[in-house]
Design a protein around this nucleic acid. Structure first.
Length: 188
DNA sequence: ACAGAGATCATCT
DNA sequence: GATGATCTCTGTG
């Protein structure tokens, strides 16, 4: 099942998270290669959707392709793409390829490979905020460009969670320097 | 290189 | 009152 079919018909967030590695994500022309993602399911104790529909997580229950933005630790914004109602993919890191100047402006003096190396950094660099919550991936300013070929993808446990910590639902582009953290016990 | 703390707020207990 | 799908800065080895 390819990414476009998953996004059109809705489907497994794990398949979408893995499939998005190597694609390019842009907001207003700024962004880069998706090098790190995480999947969150509907019946997944680590997921914001686990306790059901709330005002803050309503966008996560929208149709496939809905943008779900939440505030993390009271101060960062993090961006998800809905795979199916209650299931989504967290975009954790990009390798910057476009709009480096505007992203550097938003992020301050950091090395280019760290501009989007982490979910909070990524949202900051792309200018994504709570105002984007509920928007559609298929409409401007968002854009998703297919990857060239099947990349080498690493998998490992998700980061920063305290429940269902062992599911290998974090995915990364092998060899990328823009990962938020390395994959210690990485598997293909 | 690694560890710890502070920032900051909606939601949950 | 505690807890996060985090980041940055600071202190120490």
């Amino acid at each position: 099942m390819d990414v476009l079919t998953l996004l059109r018909d809705g489907g497994d967030p794990v398949a979408l998270a893995r499939g998005l590695i190597g694609w390019t994500f842009l907001v207003d022309g700024a962004g880069g290669l998706i090098v790190e993602t995480e999947a969150y399911g509907r019946d997944d104790a680590a997921s914001h959707s686990f306790r059901g529909l709330r005002t803050a997580n309503a966008a996560m229950f929208g149709p496939p392709g809905t943008i779900y933005v939440y505030r993390s630790y009271g101060l960062h914004w993090c961006l998800n793409i809905v795979a199916a109602p209650g299931a989504a993919v967290l975009l954790r890191a990009l390798a910057p390829t476009a709009g480096l100047d505007i992203m550097a402006e938003r992020r301050g003096p950091v090395p280019p490979h760290l501009l989007c190396a982490g979910p909070g950094r990524l949202a900051r660099a792309l200018g994504v905020t709570g105002a984007d919550d509920g928007a559609s991936l298929f409409d401007p300013p968002f854009a998703l460009v297919p990857g060239a070929e099947a990349p080498s993808v690493l998998a490992g446990p998700r980061i920063g969670i305290s429940r269902d910590t062992e599911r290998p639902w974090r995915f990364g582009l092998s060899g990328s320097r823009s990962l938020s953290r390395p994959f210690p016990r990485a598997t293909h």
